[in-house]
Amino acid sequence: MKLVEFTRRQFLKAGMVVTGGLLIGLKWTNKAYAAIKSQAEYMKDRLKGIYKHDAEMEYRCSQDNPMISYAYKHFFGHPMSELAEKLLHTQYHDRSAVLKKLEEQGLFSWKEFNSIPAHYPFE
């Protein structure tokens, strides 16, 4: 019965509040979207700084770095020498056993893992 008691003025007011709320909501979504967009721009700024510095460097290639030549001549011998293998190389190991344990606990499932989309929010 209350609906009937609504005056025309009150109805318009309620309508305005709802529309206003929607507009603010839209504006907010838009702003959030714009903020995410600019994140990619900032990331690009960082990348630009790197390539600018690269172009200014005296040596552009690793093999031209005189201290690298020095290190191989006086210490390592040549790339992948026995000494280089010992100090600069390694082997990594299977860690997948933990997934079985987590699957049992319900904390991991391959189905979920494989459905992770190849996309990031900043894009």
Partner: peptide, 13 residues
């Protein structure tokens, strides 16, 4: 162990 080339600095990207 401090001299480097452009090839090294772009590792950051």
């Amino acid at each position: 162990m401090g001299t480097s080339s452009g090839a090294a600095t772009i590792f950051a990207a």
